[in-house]
C-alpha cells in the first residue's frame, strides 16, 4: 500500500531574528521523514520550537522547504504553483490551534465555512448554502450558527466551525496543528470525539500536531516524536507508548503529569533547557540533556533505524534515532 503522504528529507531554515550582514539561520527542520496512510492519524509530538508547525505548513504547501520532498498521493507538492497547487489544496486542509484567530472576525460563520467552496467554485450559490448547512450539522452545530460571527461563539463552537471549513472541500488529509490546545478539557474531549467520528465516517486522514502526549496517545494510529528539527522516534501508537526507546521519548513520557496521585513523579525526568535552534548542538541534538550520552554522541548524527522487524500488516516499523540504545535491543 502506498502512503497517502510521504515526506522525505525535509529541511527548512529561517533567517535568525536580528540584523547583521551574515545572518545566522534558525534550523527549524533538519531532514525530516514521515509517512501517513490513508484514513490514519499520524500524531506529531514535541516541545515548542521543535518544528512541528513548520512541518505542518510544508505539508499544506504554505512553506517552501529548502530541501526535501513532500509527496501527496503520488504527486510531489514542493514547488507546485497555480492551478496544480490549488488542486492539491482542495485535498489537504488545515485546522488551526487558535479557533478565534483562525476565523475572520468580520465574516459570518457561514462565509468562513464556505470559503473553499467559493475558491473552487463548487456548485451554485444555493448549492453552497445547502452544503454549509450540511457541514454545520456534521460538526454538531445548528444551521442558525451560519449567520453568527465568531465572537458570538464559544471556543469549542469556533473549533467546530474550523473543522467544518476544513471539511468543505472534501479533503483526504486534514493537517491539524494543536487543534485542542486552547480548549478546556471538557470541550477538548468533544472535539477529539468529533474528529474520531469524522475519520470513521469519512475516512479522512489526520496529521495531528500536539505538544500534549495524552491527546496524541488518544487519537493517533502512528506517532512521531520531534526534538529540535528532527524526528527521534516513530512507531505505532501502542508500541511507542508501551515501549518507548529513545531517551528523549522516555523523558517526555515521564514528564507528563498523569492524573493519578499514586503515581507521583519522584525525580525530574530531564534537566536543562531546550537548546536554541539557531546553533543546534552538534551530533545528536539531544546530547547536552541526554542521561545516556557517550562520547561519540556529540560527533555522530544518529539516523532513524528500525527496531525489530516490520509487522505483518506492513505498518510503519518502530524506528529510533539513537545508536546507543539500539544495539542493546534484540
Amino acid at each position: 500500500m502506498t502512503a497517502l503522504l510521504d515526506v522525505r528529507g525535509l529541511v527548512v531554515t529561517f533567517p535568525a531574528p536580528g540584523s547583521g550582514l551574515r545572518r545566522k539561520r534558525v534550523h527549524a527542520l533538519s531532514g525530516v521523514d514521515l509517512s501517513l496512510q490513508r484514513g490514519h492519524t499520524h500524531g506529531l509530538v514535541g516541545e515548542s520550537g521543535s518544528g512541528k508547525s513548520t512541518l505542518a505548513r510544508c505539508v499544506l504547501g504554505l512553506q517552501r522547504p529548502d530541501d526535501g520532498s513532500v509527496v501527496f498521493d503520488g504527486t510531489e507538492i514542493v514547488g507546485l504553483r497555480g492551478s496544480a497547487l490549488r488542486d492539491i489544496r482542495r485535498r489537504i486542509q488545515p485546522v488551526f490551534q487558535d479557533p478565534l484567530g483562525s476565523l475572520d472576525p468580520r465574516w459570518t460563520v457561514g462565509r468562513s465555512v464556505r470559503e473553499s467552496l467559493d475558491a473552487f467554485g463548487v456548485g451554485s450559490p444555493a448549492d453552497r448554502e445547502r452544503r454549509v448547512r450540511e457541514l454545520l450539522d456534521l460538526v454538531g452545530l445548528s444551521p442558525d450558527h451560519a449567520d453568527r460571527h465568531p465572537v458570538q461563539l464559544s471556543g469549542g463552537q469556533r473549533q467546530r466551525v474550523g473543522i467544518a471549513a476544513a471539511l468543505a472541500s472534501g479533503p483526504d488529509l486534514i493537517v491539524a496543528d494543536e487543534p485542542v490546545s486552547a480548549l478546556d478539557v471538557s470541550v477538548q474531549a468533544q472535539i477529539l470525539n468529533l474528529m474520531a467520528r469524522l475519520q470513521r465516517d469519512l475516512g479522512v486522514a489526520f496529521l495531528f500536531v500536539s505538544h500534549d502526549l495524552s491527546v496524541v496517545e488518544h487519537v493517533s494510529s502512528e506517532v512521531s516524536v520531534m526534538y529540535l528539527g528532527k524526528i527521534v522516534e516513530t512507531a505505532d501508537r501502542a508500541d511507542l507508548f508501551a515501549d518507548p526507546v529513545h531517551p528523549y521519548t522516555r523523558a517526555l513520557l515521564d514528564a507528563v503529569p498523569i492524573p493519578e496521585p499514586d503515581a507521583r513523579l519522584v525525580h525530574v525526568p530531564l534537566s536543562g533547557d531546550i537548546p536554541s535552534p539557531i546553533d543546534p548542538p552538534s551530533g545528536c541534538r539531544f546530547h547536552p540533556r541526554c542521561p545516556l550520552r557517550v562520547d561519540s554522541c556529540s560527533r555522530e548524527h544518529p539516523v532513524l533505524t528500525p527496531v525489530g522487524t516490520l509487522d505483518s500488516a506492513g505498518h510503519t516499523p518502530h524506528r529510533v534515532a539513537c545508536p546507543v540504545v539500539l544495539p542493546a535491543r534484540p
Binding site: Q97, D104, R106
Partner: peptide
C-alpha cells in the same frame, strides 16, 4: 499573522485574493 490569512490560502485563494478578502478589510 492571523490564522485566517494562512487559512485563506490553504482554502484555495491566491495571495492577492487573500489580501483583498482578509487582510485589507481587517
Amino acid at each position: 499573522h492571523a490564522g485566517f490569512v494562512e487559512g485563506g490560502r490553504a482554502r484555495g485563494w491566491s495571495s492577492l485574493a487573500v489580501l483583498r478578502r482578509h487582510v485589507v478589510p481587517n
